[in-house]
Design a protein around this nucleic acid. Structure first.
Lengths: 179, 179
DNA sequence: CCTTGTTATGTCATAATTGACATATGTCTA
DNA sequence: TAGACATATGTCAATTATGACATAACAAGG
């Protein structure tokens, strides 16, 4: 079973969801299009890792709400315990920075400003997610224990925000280098 | 033309290299196997972006040394100026952290220690690369200008090392959360 | 002497991923 | 009222990426 399959099971371990919702929520972890997710869900259902109920809707198209089965949960727990491969970071921007000397300073500066804008937008987005999480949680986030459902969201959001700060600092530093 | 193709051109803009060397050096930017690189090089040669000379060797198998052509350089410069898509980060480890509550504290701690070991190894590796760079450079790295060949290496290595420090800090913090 | 590892290039089947096409309901805006 | 947008599911061709197989020369170690 591939990583995306386990990713879908990971999301389903917290909430039952439709394929459409899974597509939306898997993006930060393992971006995928619906054309990949729907067939995988069918496969997972065949294997008995997930099950679904057909939910008719009047205002919107009908949907299939998927849930994790016991089989799926066991598969998920086994996968978590397995050694994790190093992430294969594919970074187009880094490639461009690597040979940034091939373009003018003005163009290089434009690249950095655009990147910075992108980071800032992400920071705003993640900050909002963080605030939502604070409201959603019954206790202060720092007091969340590992087995509570929001723990994963909290620690990953914190990581993402720290990374964004580092990226923004790097952008500032780079811009000062180009002056 | 896909990103990996531009990645190969990026490397060739600094040095002429064999397919084998390109495979080794593209890894931090855009991991790829030789089975993907060799056919792409043939395509790039067909398009006139690269050219090669056959170099016979007595101690090792013969090799093909590829260089960037003017056509290739122009394509590369155009690509740098184009807007860059947001990186599609596929992070298996983050998925596991997301539902870490499904395993025992002992297993979770094992996961983190293994991750930390991995980060430490990378840090050692990058630190060595940094020291090599210092020796290779004629001037202090901070004084490198954008158009100098080592500039890209320097700014990216700096970025990578800062990111590793952040990752290591996060691991420490997570470990303290699990106690 | 044999196995393993490094250098070096290549092909091919399979798997993973994307982009396009397809359908259907409802809302909101020009 | 026509077009765009969000929800919702699905298929299929094409592209991208991996893993296995193939060949070959030399070095190093057991």
């Amino acid at each position: 079973m591939n990583t995306l399959s386990y990713g879908l099971l990971s999301l389903l371990s917290k909430n039952s969801r439709t394929g459409y919702e899974l597509m939306q929520h898997i993006q930060p972890f393992w971006p995928a299009k619906h054309s990949q997710i729907y067939p995988l869900l069918a496969q997972l259902e065949q294997k008995g890792c997930v099950e679904f109920v057909h939910v008719p809707q009047s205002d919107k198209p009908d949907k299939k709400v998927y849930s994790l089965t016991d089989t799926g949960l066991k598969a998920l727990q086994e996968w978590i315990g397995m050694p994790t491969d190093a992430p294969a970071t594919r970074d187009e921007f880094a490639l461009k920075v690597y040979c940034i000397g091939l373009v003018s300073k003005a163009e290089a500066m434009k690249m950095l400003v655009e990147r910075e804008d992108y980071y800032i937008k992400r920071k705003v987005h993640y900050t909002q997610s963080f605030e939502k999480l604070v409201k959603l949680s019954e206790k202060p986030l720092e007091e969340l224990e590992m087995d509570e459902p929001l723990f994963g969201n909290y620690v990953l959001l914190r990581k993402a925000l720290h990374k964004l700060d580092a990226d923004l600092n790097w952008c500032e530093w780079m811009k000062s280098k180009l002056k």
